[in-house]
Design a protein around this nucleic acid. Structure first.
Lengths: 254, 254
DNA sequence: CGCCGAATTGACACGGTTCAATTGAGGTGG
DNA sequence: CCACCTCAATTGAACCGTGTCAATTCGGCG
């Protein structure tokens, strides 16, 4: 499988991850793509390690344009669990009841830019302006739920080795949807501490697990970049199920 | 805190868990309550241990009227992880993309009755027939997400003891919303194997953990019934956060 | 009474954590 | 350009929470 095979014809003017991401879910009209481009024109910057929904301020639904973020829960004694990651094209602060907002906070892990996602929420209307975007948002919600459920399975029933491999496969698949994978490699800006907090492991053990995975020749990890070397073996180890087969060509992967 | 304090005036004609459950989320009109009663009038029975969305059949959104169910993932080697529980008033088969449907299956854990939930899905319309139901469904979705995130935290960062206590508190809170808690006790129809599969523990260890919790006097577990003895201590141990404070009176609990 | 699944117990092995120290790499100022 | 600082990554060793295996008891039901 070559890099070209997995990245067919690039979309019209889309180095834009948001556009790629939503287009990977469903077909969008030219007008809808245009609207997304506009949305991306005025990015709101956030430094690394900052709250994306600071207390006291009005909570506005946001879509990630660039960078990595997450939602996490801090336990009273300092333990931290990351419940999900937010990559370019993902949304946060959508349906936030008070309990969700107070228990889990959205935090940027790298420098991040976001945009107001009001546009994407206008799908409760019969005569929607952008039916394709509404469709994409429904699919995105469903995908988010799928990812959350997968995270539960990882944490509940997989070994450190298995769940680490599984998470990295998830990253690759999600970044691929946003057009952020080249060949079989992608940037990995997360520290091992962050990965450990997501995987429910200690830093030390995550470190040893990563080394083992590399020693086994499954992947390469150098200079903040991950290269997948043996996809088949990784998928077998992690009991991986693909969640969004590439749409064109429909059989490019696997 | 007496039983009466936590269960103020019963709703008009509501021994009906579905009505209680949705009413606990938001105010419903008399017509909406009527519609829910009608829905409950023709329950569809399912035996214990059966798929709620059998392969091959058309997948129809369902709301649980009675009994306990769950959604789970079976790994290739036989390991099983329960991702969430479905109690009376909960819905399943809602937004099911192919990946969600194939990876996770809804299974009844006890005898269960369900009803067609189409009615509850008609919230994508500007002039909704039942705005209260639409509101309730949005809140329900948000609550489901909250519960899923909490499950991630339990599995990722809490000890066996903590996560067991936390799950039991969740059961009590959710059953209370459906009017299925009397005093501080409720029925617990799940086997220890099921609990273990939800909590990511071995049966043996779950058994020992439950014994420890009982020995510590936090709760009583006899004849398929759980009685909460020291709520404060349980909440402290589990780092519990209430997710839906009772609505009337607003300060009945705690 | 006898059966069967669920609950319980004991002994042992192992995956993962903890604590503490060391190495490595990127960035900054002298 | 190097010394220095800081944070991330790495290593070692001891400890312990949890899993595994195998056997026994309990409890409901025919």
């Amino acid at each position: 499988m070559t890099a070209l095979a997995r990245h067919p014809a690039p979309l019209p003017r889309a180095a834009n991850p948001l556009v790629r991401r939503l287009s990977a879910l469903t077909d969008l009209s030219a007008a809808e793509i245009e609207a997304l481009q506009e949305l991306s024109a005025t990015p709101k910057p956030h430094e690394a390690q900052t709250l994306l929904a600071p207390e006291g301020k009005v909570v506005v639904p946001q879509v990630i344009l660039s960078g990595w973020a997450c939602r996490q829960r801090l336990l009273r004694d300092g333990r931290c669990q990351i419940v999900n990651f937010l990559l370019p094209g993902d949304c946060t602060n959508m349906l936030m009841t008070p309990s969700l907002r107070t228990a889990f906070s959205a935090v940027s892990l790298t420098a991040v830019t976001t945009a107001d996602a009001e546009l994407l929420l206008q799908n409760n209307d019969e005569r929607v302006v952008h039916p394709g975007l509404a469709r994409a948002m429904r699919l995105m919600t469903s995908l988010d739920e799928y990812l959350l459920c997968s995270h539960v399975v990882r944490l509940g029933r997989q070994t450190a080795y298995e769940r680490t491999v599984h998470l990295l496969l998830e990253f690759e698949a999600r970044l691929d949807m946003a057009g952020m994978v080249s060949g079989d490699s992608f940037t990995m800006p997360l520290t091992q501490e962050v990965l450990a907090d997501a995987l429910g492991l200690s830093i030390v053990h995550l470190n040893r697990t990563l080394q083992q995975i590399r020693r086994d020749g499954l992947l390469e990890l150098r200079g903040g970049r991950i290269t997948i070397l043996r996809r088949d073996m990784m998928e077998a180890v992690a009991d991986w199920m693909p969640f969004a087969p590439p749409r064109k060509p429909p059989n490019a992967r696997r």
